[in-house]
């Protein structure tokens, strides 16, 4: 699973350049999640994976995301389907004995993947959210048929043919409609909300990290927090 880093690295205590950049960018994002720094406390117990209703479809278990991060292998995480399969049920976060915000961390990883232009070769899961937002922006409400059409056209048109019979059956029962619904009255407001949300950064909440550098081996968070004003990409 571990991918060969493109640039081999012989400096003790340092990660390869590419990985180092990813790591700092990731830690920067983690820093924006209240309690996100608890990530370092993971005891690899697997409660998250055991609780995950979609882990059967994942190539990396949720637990392994943290293991890979520790191993200096964010590259593999960003290439995995796992982050895109997360159904946001928060069962892992609810049950984690160390209080790690697994679901929120997966959100951060998704953003990092998008920002780092890492997309899956054979899977378009990451495209679904954008298509969804586009449709909402256009009609003010979701249009299931349009969503699935666009999604499969952009990812796997063959699948569209396979789904056709199901789609027709649903249309017969009026579960989905051919024409998109329109929200005339509030459409302007909805568009405003989306536009506003897109301008916003990830919300920064004020909190005091419980993390103490002398109790755990990871000091990176502290360094990031003292440099949080700087752009992550400039960090070496």
């Amino acid at each position: 699973m571990v991918q060969k880093s493109p640039d081999r690295n012989y400096t003790p205590g340092k990660l390869p350049l590419r990985e180092r950049a990813l790591r700092m960018a990731f830690l920067q994002r983690i820093h924006d999640i209240p309690g996100g720094e608890k990530l370092h406390r993971c005891i690899q117990c697997g409660t998250c994976s055991g609780s995950c209703p979609v882990s059967w479809a994942m190539d990396l278990m949720p637990r392994e995301l943290i293991a890979h991060f520790r191993a200096g292998d964010i590259e593999t995480i960003l290439h995995s389907r796992t982050i895109w399969l997360c159904a946001s049920c928060y069962a892992c976060t609810e049950r984690c004995p160390q209080g790690i915000r697994v679901t929120d961390i997966i959100y951060s990883l998704k953003r990092l993947a998008i920002d780092s232009d890492i997309t899956l070769e054979h899977d378009g899961a990451h495209k679904l959210p954008q298509i969804f937002v586009d449709i909402i922006n256009k009609y003010g409400r979701n249009h299931e048929l349009g969503l699935m059409m666009r999604y499969y056209l952009r990812t796997n048109p063959l699948q569209l043919l396979r789904m056709a019979s199901l789609g027709l059956a649903m249309m017969k029962r009026r579960r989905i409609t051919f024409t998109p619904p329109r929200v005339e009255k509030a459409l302007k407001d909805i568009r405003l909300i989306i536009a506003h949300a897109e301008r916003l950064e990830v919300p920064k909440e004020i909190f005091s990290p419980e993390y103490r550098p002398d109790t755990v081996g990871y000091r990176a968070i502290d360094k990031v927090s003292s440099r949080s004003s700087k752009s992550p990409s400039t960090t070496e």
Binding site: Q44, C45, G46, T47, C48, S49, G50, S51, C52, S55, W56, L60, M61, R63, E64
Partner: peptide
Amino acid sequence: HCEDTLIGKH
């Protein structure tokens, strides 16, 4: 239900 963490499987 659990993850067998040594094989990484649910």
